[in-house]
């Protein structure tokens, strides 16, 4: 069963030093998951100030800057894992360093039949 772990948090909650440590620990966690065959992907995201929103309405593409609302918690990164069940996903979510300051949302992945293999193996 695949789960997407979405990591939300306040972007200003981290010092540069803490951020660097968080990335390092997260990388270690990914390696551990990979050894267990549970790792499908993970990445931090650039701050929400770099975000661009696209909508298509009546066939016209609208491109705008940034988030709609000034919410305190922003999507800051994700993990994609393959584990037996939700309990295992919860256990892993609890070990994500950023969970100590923010929130991890666990979403089971809807398996859509007929999708191609991702690029780059």
């Amino acid at each position: 069963m695949k789960y997407m772990l979405l990591v939300y948090g306040a972007e200003d909650a981290w010092t540069e030093q803490e951020r660097a440590e968080c990335m390092e620990e997260s990388t270690e966690l990914c390696h551990e998951l990979a050894e267990q065959g549970k790792f499908l992907g993970a990445s931090p995201l650039h701050p929400v100030s770099t975000a661009t929103l696209v909508r298509v309405r009546r066939g016209t593409r609208l491109t705008t800057d940034g988030p709609f609302a000034e919410t305190t918690e922003q999507l800051g990164g994700y993990f994609l894992i393959d584990v037996a069940n939700l309990d295992e996903a919860i256990a892993i979510a609890g070990r994500i360093p950023a969970a100590t300051k923010g929130t991890v949302e666990i979403r089971p992945v809807f398996e859509l039949a007929g999708l191609p293999q991702p690029a780059g193996k």
């Binding site: 069963m1 037996a84 069940n85 939700l86 309990d87 256990a91 089971p108």
Partner: peptide, 14 residues
């Protein structure tokens, strides 16, 4: 069913 909550007794830590 969809999030696959296991039908099980939790582990010792949990």
């Amino acid at each position: 069913r969809d999030a696959k909550i296991p039908f099980d007794v939790p582990s010792v830590q949990e």
